[in-house]
Every structure is written in structure tokens, then in C-alpha cells.
């Protein structure tokens, strides 16, 4: 029973396990094992982990593309186990996903047709679809490209169209599965800005799977996966304090923390973690002045 003090999470995973079906079941390693997490409505969550740690698999479990072999997924406190096809379909529209390759998720030859694809699948009346498409185009700032063909757009623009396509379905949560990995820095900013704005202004929950620590720092909570298990979780400050653990799983803390960590090993004695470039610069400058004063 959820108590009155604790809000019900939008998404709750309890001991999720998933192993990809294989020809030879004897040597199977689970892609996701015993993962539990709670994501509350309106949160911005980052999910970290090196290649093959099971992040995408977890994302697909959360959006009910894959069905876990054991464990349970709760949306709004309701279990997804033993749900029929139609109920799953209704749940799926709550969680949208934006994938890594911008080319492989756009369906139609015209931008606005592509954005309409999701709402069309939901069986929404034509006028309402039109309204949603226009609104989604405005939300990602791509109104003037409505009649363009997707292959004429830049990577960042394509990803924004993909976001618009998800937005038009009015989901409560959007999962970005390395959505910025194939983009140049300006495209990356474009997409991240859009995501953060949607989170701020519309309260849409964001789960951002990423290899960029600078993106993870902007999240409310950070989760770290390693070989299918969740090894760390907490606010960015809490998680990036575990620099040694992060290094063990081939991850790095944000550049500022890494720098001060290295300086600490030379006897720097800086407080960690530091997630802000200005603060980092101030700390170093301060230390420099102190050392000069002391001779």
C-alpha cells in the first residue's frame, strides 16, 4: 500500500531481469539483472554505463518493448504483469523513446506526416492530429520545416523531429537512448535544450541514457549500470563522489571532478565532487593564492 506521505512513482521497476533469447541457452548472461528503480513524474533522470552494460535493454523494458523474464514493472503503481495486449498498448503511449540513429526512426517522407504517425496509430480524430502536429512542431521549433523531407535535415533537426513525433502522442515520459551520440556538439545542445525545456515547462519526465557526463550533471538523479546491474544511484553530487567506483567500471566523472581528483592525488585536498566549471576554477585559483601566501 502506498502511504500518504510518499508519492506514487510514475515508473517503478522491481527486480527486473532480462536475458536475450539465444540459440545456446547454457551460457546466457542476463542483459539486465535485478534492477530496481523509481522514477517520479517530472523528474529528469540520467542513466550511465559503458557499452553493453544493459542501458538500452532496461529502456526497452521500461517502455514495454521487451517483457521481463522476472520482476515487475509498475506504471502509476499498477503492475504491468499479466496485462492483455490492449492494456499494454494503452500503457505504451505514456512512455516515448528517442533512439540513437536519427535516420532509423523516421517513418514518413514528409516531416509533418512523420509526426502524425504516432497519433494516427492511437486512432485520434484527424482535426486533433493536425492540432497536435502543429503544437509539437512549435514545441521543438521546427514549424518552418513541416513540409520538408527528413533526409534534407541535419542530424540535430532530425532528432528534434523524432522528439516532436513522440510529443504528439502526449507521453508523460520520454526516454532518450543516446539520442545525442551521433550528433555534433551543436546538434547535441539543440536536442538537450529541447529535452530540458520540455522537462521544465511541461513537466514531462526525462530519462536520458548518455555517455556524456556534462549531460548527466543536469539531471535530478543519476543511475549507473554495470554488466546488467544497477551499481550506483543518487543525485549527481552523490554519484560523482564515487570516483573510484566509476573508474572501476570504465566511466569517468565530469571533467571538473576528474581534474580535481587528479590534483588531490598530488596533495590538492579539494572537496569532491565539483560539477561546475566556474566553481572548479575558483577553487583552483583560491588554492593557488593560498600556496603563494604560504611561500
Amino acid at each position: 500500500m502506498p502511504s500518504f506521505t510518499e508519492p506514487v512513482p510514475l515508473i517503478e521497476a522491481r527486480d527486473l531481469c532480462y536475458t536475450y533469447p539465444d540459440d545456446d541457452p547454457s551460457d546466457d548472461v542476463p542483459a539486465v539483472k535485478n534492477v530496481s528503480l523509481k522514477v517520479y513524474a517530472g523528474e529528469h533522470v540520467a542513466l550511465l554505463g559503458h557499452n553493453g552494460s544493459g542501458k538500452s535493454t532496461l529502456a526497452k523494458l521500461l517502455s514495454q518493448i521487451l517483457v521481463p523474464q522476472s520482476g515487475d514493472l509498475l506504471i502509476d503503481g499498477k503492475s504491468c504483469r499479466d496485462l492483455g495486449e490492449n492494456e499494454l498498448f494503452d500503457l505504451r503511449k505514456n512512455i516515448g523513446m528517442v533512439f540513437q540513429n536519427p535516420d532509423n526512426q523516421l517513418v514518413a517522407t514528409v516531416v509533418e506526416e512523420d509526426i502524425a504517425f504516432g497519433p494516427e496509430n492511437l486512432g485520434i480524430p484527424s482535426e486533433e492530429i493536425r492540432r497536435r502536429v502543429d503544437e509539437a512542431l512549435d514545441a521543438v521549433g521546427m514549424r518552418e520545416y513541416a513540409r520538408t523531407s527528413p533526409h534534407m535535415l541535419s542530424g540535430g533537426q532530425k532528432q528534434r523531429i523524432a522528439v516532436a513525433g513522440i510529443l504528439a502522442m502526449m507521453p508523460r515520459c520520454i526516454v532518450f537512448d543516446e539520442a545525442t551520440a551521433m550528433l555534433d556538439p551543436s546538434g547535441r545542445d539543440e536536442v538537450m535544450e529541447t529535452a530540458c525545456r520540455l522537462n521544465r515547462e511541461r513537466g514531462i519526465t526525462i530519462i536520458n541514457i548518455t555517455h556524456h557526463m556534462a549531460e548527466a550533471v543536469r539531471a535530478d538523479r543519476v543511475y549507473v549500470m554495470h554488466e546488467g546491474s544497477m551499481i550506483l544511484s543518487g543525485t549527481p553530487r552523490e554519484v560523482f563522489a564515487h570516483i573510484a567506483t566509476l573508474r572501476d567500471v570504465a566511466l569517468e566523472a565530469p571533467a571538473e571532478t576528474e581534474l580535481l581528483y587528479s590534483l588531490n592525488r598530488l596533495g590538492g585536498a579539494f572537496p569532491l565532487p565539483v560539477l561546475d566549471a566556474d566553481l572548479c576554477a575558483d577553487l583552483i585559483a583560491q588554492k593557488y593564492r593560498e600556496t603563494r601566501k604560504n611561500g
Partner: peptide, 19 residues
């Protein structure tokens, strides 16, 4: 693409509307 389409609730022509 198949995964992306499934994510966008595609399940064939049934119950589908057009813009």
C-alpha cells in the same frame, strides 16, 4: 525502425486514423 515504430504504438492498419 521496427522497434521505433512499435514504440510509437504501431500495430498495423487496424484502428488507425489519418491526419
Amino acid at each position: 525502425l521496427a522497434v521505433a515504430m512499435e514504440c510509437r504504438c504501431y500495430r498495423g492498419g487496424e484502428g488507425r486514423t489519418r491526419m
